[in-house]
Structures are given as C-alpha cells and as structure tokens.
C-alpha cells in the first residue's frame, strides 16, 4: 500500500513535469486563435526546450556559481511544489510536507533565487527585472494569503489535501466569499506568472518587461530549465486554483482505485484545457498595465480577498446560526 502511494506520487510529479509545457503551449495557441493569428503547433514548447538543451551555454565572463545554480534551484522548487499540490489525488506522501502557506514560501524561495541570479551579472536589465519581480511578489503574497485564510475559514485547514477532502464532504455550500477569493486568486495568478495585465510573456520590449528582463543573460540549458520551471509554476498555480475552487474529480482520500485515478486525470486535463482557454481570453481582452498601476491591480486582488473574508465572517456565520 505504501509503495502504491509512492508510485502515485511519482506518477503525479512526472505527469506535472511532462504536461506543464503543454499547458503553456495550449495557452499560447488559444491566444493565437483569439488574436486571429495562425497558432504554432502544441508541441512547439517541447521543441524549443529540446533546442535550448542542445545549444552551447553562453555564460557571461564573471558569472558566479550562484548564476549557474539558480536555474536548477528554480526547477527543483517547482517540481517539489508539484509534488505537494494534490493535482490528481489527495493521499500523497509529500503533501504532508507543506500546507499552502509553506507552498507560498516555496514559491518565494524560487523568486528570490531568480532575482539574485538576475542581479549577478550586474547588467541594468537584470537588476531592474529583479527589483520589479520582488515588488510584484511582495504585493501578491498578502493577497494570496488572504485567499488561503478564506479557505481556512471554510474548511478549517490550510493543507490542500484536507481542503479537497473537506470540499468533498460538504459540496453544496455556495458561499459568496468563495467567489471573491476566486477572483482574487486569478488576479494573483496573472501577476505571479508574468501574464498580461502585469507582464507580457511574449514581449521583448526591454523597458516594460519583468520576467524576461531577468532572463536576458541566460541561454541554452539554463534558459531551458528556467522556461520549464516557469511553465511548471503556471501549472502549479492552476492546480492550486483547482484544489481550492474546482476540486471535482480529484481522487480523494480512500477512493484511490485505478478508475478514480483515470477520472482524476481526465478531469485534470479538461480543467486545464478550460482554464487555459479562459486565461488566454483574459489576456487577450486586457491591456498591459503600466508598472506603477501594478500595485493598484494587486491591491484590488488583496481587497477582494479581504472582502470575501469579511462577507464570510458576517454572512457565513449567520446562515449556520
């Protein structure tokens, strides 16, 4: 039995690593369709990764070891996060290693490493990107935390597997706070993953970019690892969102036969497809904000989450009373 859970854990991580680039590719494809462009094939992201892995790494003359370690650390944190998030099943050995708050910490570790690596060479863009990334980060974290507070108030836990299990045991609750929290979460997701209103993953216009500015000095396998880690991060965020707001289909504790897993995989893929299309839609209809509008955007996210909390404290308590 123990072996089985570990096998399931391993399978989940491998699946996450494998389909994360596909998810990113799917969003790019949806965006292309929405913008009336002909879309690249779905395998484009894999091809790019393959190409990058086989190139020679061009490294700045005085790059320190930190610069070369950071991509691996980034990849490592994202894979660990994928192991912790219950994307397919809740009975995972790694899931107990961290609750959602610790998961935020894990993402923060990745962010700090990336920013430090960006500052290592000492080019203007690297430092600029690092500064902006940290700024977005410290504004997004409180908002995300408030979303988790909401979840805690609903199900009395910050551990994602318990949340999913808790949802399964009382599924009929439509709490208004959930809607607030969900909107706030989507806003944080957009900001944290360098998506459109805050950053543009497709831009190479130096003055406006955040994430790309940090990567300017990276090439070949290091760049490939970072890109892969970014797509994993997006995948992870999506899966956190599913666990918090759309936990249908995830194989819960106890129900973990082969059929349940099959359902879980199907549900995950359907949800990812829909979420990707929705993300592409959001990105297509919104314009990129000026960098100093970003705090406003994130303040809104934070505010929504807190409002959800307040509404829950008042209305939620009253409906049960």
């Amino acid at each position: 039995m123990r072996v089985l859970t570990f096998a399931r854990q391993f399978g989940e991580v491998v699946l996450a690593i494998a389909i994360a680039p596909l998810f990113a590719g799917w969003i790019a494809q949806c965006r292309a369709w929405l913008q009336n462009r002909s879309a690249p094939p779905l395998t484009q992201t894999y091809r790019m990764l393959r190409k990058l892995f086989h190139k020679d790494a061009a490294l700045a003359v005085d790059a320190s070891p930190l610069f070369r370690t950071a991509p691996y650390v980034l990849f490592g944190t994202m894979v660990l996060a994928a192991a912790i998030i219950p994307s397919l099943a809740t009975d995972l050995p790694f899931a107990r290693a961290a609750d959602a708050i610790a998961l935020i910490g894990l993402f923060a570790t990745a962010r700090v490493f990336m920013s430090l690596a960006a500052m290592d060479i000492g080019t203007s863009f690297g430092t600029l990107g690092a500064r902006r990334e940290m700024m977005i980060g410290f504004l997004a974290e409180p908002a995300l935390l408030m979303v988790l507070f909401n979840a805690f108030l609903l199900y009395g836990s910050t551990a994602l597997p318990s949340l999913v299990d808790g949802y399964a045991s009382h599924p009929s609750v439509i709490d208004p706070s959930v809607i607030f929290a969900a909107v706030a979460f989507v806003m944080v997701l957009l900001a944290e993953n360098a998506r459109v209103p805050i950053d543009n993953p497709a831009t190479h216009l130096e003055l406006t970019m955040i994430h790309e500015a940090m990567l300017l000095e990276y090439s070949a396998r290091h760049l490939a690892l970072i890109e892969w880690a970014s797509s994993l991060k997006l995948f992870n965020y999506a899966c956190i969102g599913f666990a918090l707001f759309l936990p249908w289909g995830i194989a819960i504790h106890g129900a973990d036969g082969a059929s349940a897993l099959l359902i879980a995989v199907t549900a995950l893929i359907v949800k990812l497809a829909l979420a990707g299309a929705a993300l592409a839609l959001i990105e297509s209809v919104s314009a990129k904000l000026r960098i100093f509008r970003a705090p406003e955007f994130l303040a809104m996210a934070f505010l929504l989450a807190v409002l959800g909390l307040l509404v829950h404290l008042l209305l939620g308590v009253s409906t049960h009373a």
Binding site: I174, L304, V311, L315
Partner: peptide, 24 residues
C-alpha cells in the same frame, strides 16, 4: 429555503463588490 438565503447573500456580496468597483 436555505438556498434562497444563500442566493440573497450572494447578491448582497455582489452589491458590495460593485460598490468597491465604483470606488476604483
């Protein structure tokens, strides 16, 4: 029904949300 109360809460929350949207 309980459902109606929940729906009403939902609408009330929406009202609050719109008020904040108006502020911004």
């Amino acid at each position: 029904s309980h459902l109606a109360a929940q729906l009403l809460n939902l609408l009330a929350a929406g009202l609050l949300l719109i008020s904040f949207a108006m502020l911004s």
